[in-house]
């Protein structure tokens, strides 16, 4: 749903501008605050909403099919590794809080620096293997699947 920004909460930090995949969160030069310049190219992806340190961005359902009066709010916390949602229905009958993990590891620490990994040997280069394979494919019987190992042929013609 297209985003909008609350005047009193935005301090113009630009985090939303930095993240929006559609390039539609821009800073208004006069007001020095952010706003959605092109609501009909907004995917309600919530990237900006999650990124705003002041919770200044909210969404209001697309005018062509969503009535007023609902709310879906979010708080994403990289340190805790969680995301918390609150969904409120228009008629007030439903008010849900949902929590989900976003990572199981301290942020960014468990991704290898491949420039420091041991260089691949020549036979590996000439094989079909990728980094850390076959270990990471974890074929219990060993290597990577091939036509031969799986008893396959590749044949021209009609086959169902």
């Amino acid at each position: 749903m297209p985003t909008f920004v609350y005047m009193t909460r935005c301090d113009g930090c630009g985090q939303c501008v930095d993240i929006c995949p559609s390039d539609i969160m821009h800073i208004d030069k006069g007001l020095r605050r952010a706003y959605n310049i092109e609501p009909n190219m907004c995917w309600e992806c919530y990237s900006c909403v999650k990124a705003c340190p002041h919770h200044a961005i909210d969404v209001r359902g697309y005018a062509d099919f969503a009535p007023l009066g609902h709310s879906v709010r979010v708080h994403r916390d990289e340190e805790k590794g969680t995301i918390a949602w609150r969904i409120k229905f228009r008629n007030g009958k439903k008010d849900m809080e949902l929590l989900a993990p976003i990572t199981t590891k301290p942020w960014g620490t468990c991704i290898p620096q491949l420039s420091e990994a041991a260089a691949p040997a020549n036979d590996m280069r000439n094989s079909q293997l990728l980094f850390n394979e076959p270990k990471y494919v974890r074929m219990d019987e060993g290597g990577l699947h091939t036509l031969e190992s799986n008893g396959l042929e590749i044949k021209e013609g009609v086959q169902y």
Partner: peptide, 12 residues
């Protein structure tokens, strides 16, 4: 697809 949750909340 957050928008679907928003839509259901908006349309009850």
């Amino acid at each position: 697809t957050v928008g679907q949750a928003v839509l259901w909340a908006a349309t009850d």
